[in-house]
Nucleic acid binder design. Structure first.
Lengths: 192, 192, 192, 192
DNA sequence: GATGAATGAGCTTTCATTCAT
DNA sequence: GATGAATGAAAGCTCATTCAT
């Protein structure tokens, strides 16, 4: 593993452990097992690690979403898969996601957040477009906007859950079922 | 105005101005016009102001939402008013909202976030319940969950916009129109 | 009890509890149950309480020593009583004694220490003088100096003990026995 | 000289100069010629330098005492040398000694004081033991205890003097002569 | 006399940053 | 490239002191 990568992963650990504000570069290099000065060979400041972390997350997210969606032919199954995926992903990375968002918000980098999401929006929009051609969603659906609403809706509902629990309690299962129904109506998907 | 209140409002100003990371307690007390030591009479640390700010924001939001919703009799108009309100509120407090969330995330206070939102969820749920009795929304709607989804959906879509612009551009108007339509379908509201 | 006295006793408590350095005037007034400003009506600073504490100690010590010594007619018994008294007194006030000395040392008041002890030296010297007339101590004994040596010797040996233990262990009993013998030889007292 | 040593010696200077209470870490580092932060690489607080100072003092005292005592064959001369040495040492370090004791008392380190003295007690006891074998001191002398009493006696009598004067006045000479005599009787040393 | 909220000078402490090795 | 002891600017924080009530 490269030193740069070591530092980035150590930063994630340290941020999780102590919060962004209280994490020092000293903490990060101690966790990474490199010298104090080495940090500056790769990053100019503590918060400049954030975009790298965000990219790291997305680099894991995009191919996973793609794989999920292409596994299913019908939009109903795809919606289902998307909900499951976003909940699973949010659960797995809940700390890091909150940290990354918060870390970007604390700097001037917040605007990059949307750029980072762009590829995901694209993918979802493409699938909706396909479904529209197949008349499987309502014909007045604006796929470009809908993609963003869907991601926002699913992420916020997943976060609402995993703020309190790390495991999939009954409460989580109900929330998932309900958000799926909410989503199907919003997209105008006919259920059998 | 109490010193505590002065400090809190000054913190909002300072956070807006310089971001949380770069704001010092010195900045806050200068803006508040109180002495350095006075800060510590009311708050133990910079981030401990965050929950107070969050409460302040919600304290402004709840009666405003209540007023908006009670002004309209039909759920169609209420939905419309809610979208307009959340967009307007998000625009007005866009910096502070992102910062507050991020500030809470950086502390142990994040879980309080949902508690703070609780009264708003309650209000929206109550209005949906009323609409359901009037058969103005789909009859299988779970009002309790829907309330949370609606708020999450609207806030995320408003944030997506105001991350980039402070004024209501065409882009914003379209996003509003689209999210309204998305919402109406999700709730199963019949449009004339 | 006067406020001044309350403050002085509270200072002793606070110094015992947290040490002189870490005790604040705030701590003292909280313990004393008076207001912050009240302190300054009686003392100009934290360390200016020290001489008052020292006087308080001596005010208790002098009559007690006097009583002990006058109870016994012979110098052998008086020496015995003095050892017992200094050990008992040191045990009882060991924290305060160290604090007082240290508190005076940290200021310009250390020289007052000897003044405070003066009456005790006087008393002991007087008793030695009487014993010398009775030929009960060696005839070349300089009573004035001997008084100071005795107090120094006994206090240091008592402190050596009670630094480690608060109760009269076997170790303490042996130390007392040995210091008595040491003292008797020093004074040239013939034992039966 | 190591930075740690520089800081310790600077602390001695500064404490002498301004007293413990009024000395700031800033004063110490200025005197030491190191940066503010460097202090914290070696000591966590101002008072935590105290044990280091105490050790430093003792490290100087032990070999000096050893040298003094081994220079003389007879216990009479050794007693004389010990009195002279303790008075000289107390005079030289009078500020620091009082401060060190007081500084240790103000912390949790006071108990270390006796540990630090242990090697000196050992040396003196060994010399007394030798003298006892030679029948130069009374045969019922408990050398272990006597060593502690002697050090306590001599230090307290030296301190009594140098509290008021820095030079060897007549008063000091008399006190030395008298304490020597007191000591000789206590040990049962026959004078020619 | 008594109070205690407010002050702000000045202390302690941190920690990003450097640079000789 | 890599190191980590040393730096010192700048932050946090304290607490003796004041003064209107």
């Amino acid at each position: 593993m490269s030193k740069r990568e070591k530092i980035m992963l150590a930063a994630i650990e340290a941020f999780k452990e102590k919060g962004i504000e209280k994490t020092t570069i000293s903490d990060i290099v101690k966790t990474a097992g490199v010298a104090q000065g080495t940090f500056y060979l790769y990053f100019p400041s503590k918060l400049s690690v954030m975009p790298a972390i965000a990219e790291h997350l997305i680099a894991q997210m995009v191919p996973a979403i793609e794989k999920e969606l292409t596994q299913h032919a019908d939009v109903l199954d795809q919606a289902d898969a998307l909900v499951e995926f976003i909940f699973a992903f949010t659960r797995q990375y809940r700390d890091v996601l909150a940290l990354t968002y918060s870390g970007l918000a604390a700097t001037e980098h917040l605007k990059e957040w949307e750029d980072i999401y762009e590829p995901i929006y694209k993918w979802v929009a493409a699938f909706l477009e396909k479904a529209k051609q197949d008349k499987r969603v309502r014909e007045n659906l604006n796929c470009h906007y809908a993609a963003k609403f869907i991601i926002g809706l699913l992420e916020s509902s997943a976060e609402q859950m995993y703020l309190f629990t790390e495991t999939d309690t009954d409460e989580v299962l109900i929330q998932k079922r309900e958000v799926k129904q909410f989503l199907l109506y919003a997209l105008g998907i006919e259920t059998p």
